[in-house]
Computed example of a mutant assay.
Amino acid sequence: MRIYVAGIGPGSAEDITPALQQAVADSNVVVGYKYYFQFIEKFISDDTVCIDTGMKKERQRAEMAFEYAEKGNTVCVVSSGDAGIYGMAPLIYEMKREKESKVEIVSIPGISAFQKAASLLGAP
C-alpha cells in the first residue's frame, strides 16, 4: 500500500529523474493527466494499469490513487515539474490525513519549469 507522488520535470526526456523512472517501473498503477503519459510510457510495464484524465481532475486522480493503493497496489501519481510545487503532493498528503489512511506516501521531486528556465537563461 504505497503511493508515489512524482514530478516528471518540465517536459523533456533528459529532465526525467532516475527516481521517477524507478517509481513508475515499480508501480502496478499509474495515475496522471493523459498528456503526461507520452513522457513516461517507456518506463511503464505492459501489465500496468494506466488511469489518465483530462485537466482539472486532480481530486479525482487522487481519489483513484487511494482507491487502488488501499486495495494493496503500488500507485504512482505523476505531475509535471515537481510534484510538490503546484503539483499533486499537497493534495495527496491532505487526502491521506482526511481519510486517516494507512497508505504510505513517497514524494519524488522533479525538476520544476522555473528551475529549467533559470538554467537556460543563465540566471540561477
Rank of each mutant, 00 (worst) to 15 (best):
R2I: 11
I3T: 01
Y4E: 06
V5E: 02
V5F: 08
A6I: 10
A6F: 07
A6V: 14
G7Y: 02
G7L: 04
I8A: 04
G9M: 00
G9T: 00
G9K: 07
P10V: 11
G11Q: 01
A13V: 11
A13F: 14
D15V: 00
I16W: 04
T17G: 02
T17N: 00
T17P: 06
P18V: 06
L20H: 08
L20K: 03
Q21D: 13
Q22N: 08
A23L: 03
A23G: 07
V24S: 09
V24G: 14
A25Y: 12
A25H: 10
S27E: 05
S27Q: 08
S27K: 05
S27F: 05
N28F: 01
N28C: 11
N28I: 03
V29P: 05
V29F: 00
V30I: 15
V30E: 01
V30K: 09
V30A: 10
V30F: 05
V31L: 00
V31E: 00
G32H: 11
Y33P: 10
K34W: 14
K34M: 13
K34C: 12
Y35K: 10
Y36M: 08
Y36L: 11
F37D: 10
F37L: 06
Q38I: 09
Q38P: 04
F39T: 14
F39L: 01
E41F: 14
E41N: 11
K42Q: 05
K42R: 12
K42P: 13
F43P: 07
F43E: 14
F43Q: 13
S45I: 09
D46K: 09
D46G: 12
D46Y: 04
V49Y: 08
C50D: 09
I51L: 08
D52P: 00
T53Y: 11
T53P: 08
T53M: 09
T53G: 01
G54Y: 03
M55K: 12
K56M: 15
K57V: 14
K57S: 13
K57Q: 12
K57D: 07
E58Y: 05
E58Q: 08
Q60P: 02
R61C: 13
R61G: 04
R61N: 02
A62W: 03
A62M: 12
E63Y: 13
A65Y: 01
A65C: 09
A65I: 14
A69M: 13
A69K: 03
E70C: 04
N73S: 12
N73P: 15
T74D: 13
T74G: 08
V77K: 04
V77D: 01
V77F: 10
V77H: 02
V78L: 07
V78F: 01
V78I: 07
V78W: 01
V78R: 02
S80W: 06
S80R: 00
S80Y: 07
S80K: 00
G81S: 01
G81F: 04
G84Q: 07
G84K: 01
G84N: 06
G84C: 08
G84I: 02
I85C: 04
I85M: 06
Y86W: 14
Y86T: 02
Y86G: 05
Y86K: 08
G87S: 03
M88E: 03
M88V: 15
M88D: 14
M88W: 12
P90T: 11
P90A: 03
L91F: 12
L91Y: 15
I92R: 13
E94D: 10
E94K: 07
K96M: 11
R97H: 10
R97G: 10
E98Y: 11
K99Q: 01
E100D: 02
